[in-house]
Structure formats: C-alpha cells, structure tokens
Write a protein that binds this DNA or RNA. Structure first.
Lengths: 180, 180
DNA sequence: ACTTAACCGGAGTGGTCGGTCCGAATATAC
DNA sequence: GTATATTCGGACCGACCACTCCGGTTAAGT
C-alpha cells in the first residue's frame, strides 16, 4: 500500500467520525470527502460501500475504547470502571450511528461491528468483575445490565447535551444502584 | 372539517407512528400514505411538510404519556412512578425519531414538540415529588436526572431490543439508585 | 335529488445521494 | 531519468424522496 493511500485512508476515517457524530448516518459521502480533502472516488476506493465506511468508523471507535479499558485495568477497580463509563458517555456522539447500523435494509447484521462490540463488552466485563471482587459493586449484576445502562446514558447525552452537573448526577445514581 | 378528512388525518398519524418507529425519520412519506390507505397528496394536505408530520406524531405520543401520568397520580406513589417509566421505556421506539428532530437542518428547534416535552416533564415531576414525599425516592434528585436516565433506557432499548429480564433488571438498578 | 365546496389520488418535478468510470497525476523501482 | 503500476479526482448515472398540481370524487347542506 502506497504511503499517500494510507494517509488518505486515515484522514477519511477521521473525517467520517466527525461528520457522522454531527449528522448521524445521514452525513453524506460528499461532505466526508470534502472535509478529508480528497475526491469522492478516493473514498469509494477505500470503502466500496457506505456501510463499509460506517462499519470501519464504528469498529475503530470501539477498539479505542477497549484499549482504554485494558489500560485502566491496573488502577483502583471502582475508579477504573467509573472512568471508562465516563469516557463512553462523553464520546457518545459517535455511537448515535449505531441506530442506523443495526436496522440497515433487510435486517442484515454486519459482522465486524458486532465483533468489535463484543470485544468492548468483554473489556467492560473484566473491569466489572474486578470491581465486584473488590466489593464496590453488588455481585448480582451482569455485564448486560451495565452495558444497557451505559449505552442508554451515552445515547441520551448524544441526543441532547445535558448540563454537566445533571449528567454527573445521573451517573452517580446509576453507580449508587450498582453498589451492594 | 369533513368527517372523512378527520378520519384520514387520524389514520395518517397512526401509520406515521408505526413507520417512524421502525425506520426512524428515514421512513418515507410514500410508505406512510400506503399504510394509511390514502394518496400522497392527502398526506401533504394535512401536513404541508414532513417536519410537520414528524412533529405532530411526537406531540401526540408525548401527550398520551402525559395523560397516563395524570391518570396514575391517584395510586401508590412509588408504583405509579415505576409504571410510567416502564411505559416510557416500552414505547421507546417512537422516541428514536427525536434524534433527527433536534438536529434538523440549520439547528432550528421546533416549538410544538419542545412544549409537549415540557408538559410531559412536568407530569413526571409531579409523580416524582409525590414519591419523594412518600419517602420512596431520595430527596436530592430532580426531574432532570430522572428524565435523562429514562430517556437513556428508552433509547437504548429502542436501538437494540434487550432481553426482558435484562431490561427489567436495569430498571431495578436505576430505581435502587434513586432510593434514599 | 341536486348543488357545490371541500377533499382525494397519483403522475410528475427538482434535487440529493450513493456509487461508477476513466483520463490525469504521482509515487516507487530500476 | 524513465517506466509503470497505483492512486487520485470529479463529471456522470440511476434511484429515491419530499413536494406540487389538477382532474375526478364525495360529503353535506337544502
């Protein structure tokens, strides 16, 4: 792969994340190409379908979160879990496009994002179990519930930005509900 | 207003709620007209713009929820609050289109849905204060946080249907966090 | 029953968006 | 420096969608 091609690929992915964050899946390919400073043809050579582009963006986003989760697995269990959740909620704008992803035409579910999502889920699960063994989280909750709650907060925040205090307090309430 | 016109208006709104619930704001006007059993022209006479149709659908949905909230204000405070939240989460599919509503072209915020949303917020606030006076909910939370959490659960569920047990448990966690 | 004003339906229009194609430009190898 | 394989760019195509327009239809008042 030529050096300029690789550079363009990166710039396209970055532009895609920005555009999708603002406009959801409605964000047009033209707009992405313009912001990345390349032609439309270039975008479609790297990602033959818009679905491919959306999926690649989501996968990248998830894998970055999973990497952060692994990096956090050294410090204090409860604090680590809280910090990861805060990041997920904070960068929520990107997740908004999952809405469209899961309901693409004809109900087909793309593989790559699902697997990336599962990797992230496993990383969250690891942090959660550690916090449970530490006694900071009650032992009868599973990753499913935590994931649902976090996804919910992330989506709600992405949809309509809330005051920082409100957002923080909502997170406190969830964590209080998770305490033994 | 002629009787058939009124009937058509109702059928259009019903079809719109169904279509938007499934496809989000992407749902086409043609599809709505087909399901309502009317021509496209009829849809656009009742709702000159697609925005108008979306707004009317949302307003209707919110006002139905607010009416239910008022109806619930007789029974047990904690149970009433829980039941309303369950309904809101359960009928979440409709709320998905708020994502598009708030970010319509040029950032204009339509009046009608905002006011309907505030009416619903007030109704929830009433139920909440009653539950707080009853001692079932801690007194340092406001409607803002509750609303954010409920909207989050609703959106997350609408986006990807969760197992009923998971959904129920997540709601339990939130309510546990809301307890004194 | 008859009139008429309101309503209905759907073919047609303009514009947008995803995706294609190929001549021009450029990086890399020798 | 030259050759060439790869990449770039944007005009172009077809599909879809919100919205218009007007001839035909029907409810409602007398």
């Amino acid at each position: 792969m030529r050096a300029d091609a690789q550079a363009n690929r990166d710039r396209i992915l970055e532009a895609a994340e920005a555009v999708f964050s603002e406009a959801g899946e409605t964000g047009s390919t033209d707009e992405i190409a313009r912001r990345a400073g390349v032609g439309i043809g270039t975008v479609f050579r790297h990602f033959p379908t818009k679905q491919d582009l959306v999926e690649a963006t989501v996968v990248r986003h998830f894998d970055e979160l999973a990497a952060q989760a692994r990096a956090l697995s050294a410090g204090d269990p409860a604090a680590a879990l809280r910090e990861l959740i805060e990041t997920m909620v904070g960068t929520a704008a990107t997740k908004i496009l999952l809405v469209g992803l899961l309901t693409d035409s004809s109900g087909r579910v793309p593989e790559a994002p699902v697997q990336a999502s599962q990797r992230l889920r496993r990383a969250v699960g690891t942090l959660l179990r550690r916090a449970q063994q530490d006694g900071a989280i009650r032992s009868d909750v599973s990753v499913d519930e935590v994931y649902l709650l976090v996804r919910g907060l992330a989506l709600a925040t992405a949809q309509r930005p809330a005051k920082h205090a409100t957002q923080r307090k909502a997170l406190d309430i969830v964590l209080a509900g998770l305490a033994p």
